[in-house]
């Protein structure tokens, strides 16, 4: 049982944080899975489908920390509406072109790498164990993203133009990923995290600059708006996404599928 020995406020903060991580993985995994059968190369279709599965499996793992029962876990994943979802708005944006999807995924992976790196130092053994398992697969995702970004950066004017557009769009939405949150302090006080996730922002900007922007000769433009996905304020795209995702499930949530 996660959060044993924590006060009510700290346990609530822990639950919020795990939901945030899980929702991020679910929404991104769902978007990634929409490329299935339509990726630019047959080989890449297979590779990207693994990445999508990894993200959604991580979501399942994280929801599983909050609900042991599989039906309850599915209710968490499929039963909430937009106001209940804690994911970053960046992740619900439609897939766009291959450049956008790759840049979005890689920028997210950088933020996630920093977050799960901190989870390795959590006093919560279940969180440490979850982080270890997720990071084994994330190493592949990071290598995949880096390879593709460098191949596309070297792929001619058209390719670079698309990458630049993607970087601009993703950067503009990126603040949501590591925005300061009201309950961060409680997480640190509980020992669940060594530091508030928002303290990772500077390292995040550094890495995105070096890994994504610099190869294109670009600088990382600080985002000018702060979406509030963590507070349940999402775009119309999220409504579409949830409607599709829960379509069959909601036809009878009490049925076994």
């Amino acid at each position: 049982m996660i959060g044993k020995g924590l006060g009510l406020g700290q346990r609530a903060a822990l639950r919020e944080y795990i939901l945030t991580l899980a929702d991020d993985e679910l929404v991104l995994g769902h978007r990634d899975s929409e490329w299935c059968a339509f990726a630019p190369l047959i080989e890449e279709d297979v590779a990207f489908a693994s990445i999508a599965q990894d993200e959604m499996a991580h979501a399942a793992l994280l929801y599983g920390l909050l609900e042991e029962d599989e039906a309850e876990r599915d209710a968490l994943a499929f039963g909430r509406d937009g106001r209940g979802m804690r994911s970053a708005v960046l992740l619900e944006r439609p897939n766009g072109d291959w450049a956008y999807s790759l840049v979005r995924h890689h920028v997210y992976d950088i933020a996630d790498d920093l977050r799960t790196g901190d989870l390795l130092e959590s006093k919560e053994p279940l969180l440490r164990a979850a982080a270890e398992r997720m990071r084994r697969e994330e190493r592949y995702h990071l290598a995949h993203g880096r390879s593709w970004l460098s191949v596309l950066a070297a792929g001619g004017a058209c390719s670079r133009e698309r990458l630049e557009r993607a970087v601009d769009a993703v950067a503009a939405d990126s603040y949501d990923l590591l925005r300061p949150l009201a309950w961060e302090g409680a997480l640190v006080a509980a020992g669940a995290l060594p530091r508030a996730p928002s303290r990772l922002w500077d390292r995040f900007v550094e890495r995105v600059g070096a890994e994504v922007c610099a190869p294109l000769g670009l600088a990382f433009h600080p985002p000018t708006h702060a979406p509030r996905g963590r507070e349940g304020e999402h775009s119309a795209a999220m409504d579409d996404l949830l409607r599709t995702m829960s379509e069959v499930y909601r036809s009878d949530p009490r049925a076994v599928w």
């Binding site: 059968a37 489908a49 599965q53 876990r73 599915d74 994943a77 995702m245 379509e247 599928w257």
Partner: peptide, 23 residues
């Protein structure tokens, strides 16, 4: 049906199956 699968386990399984077919 990947986006519409009515459960996390089914979602992963259908995605894995289609992945196999493309493989």
């Amino acid at each position: 049906w990947i986006p519409r699968a009515p459960g996390l386990a089914r979602k992963l399984a259908v995605l894995a199956k289609v992945q196999d077919e493309i493989g």
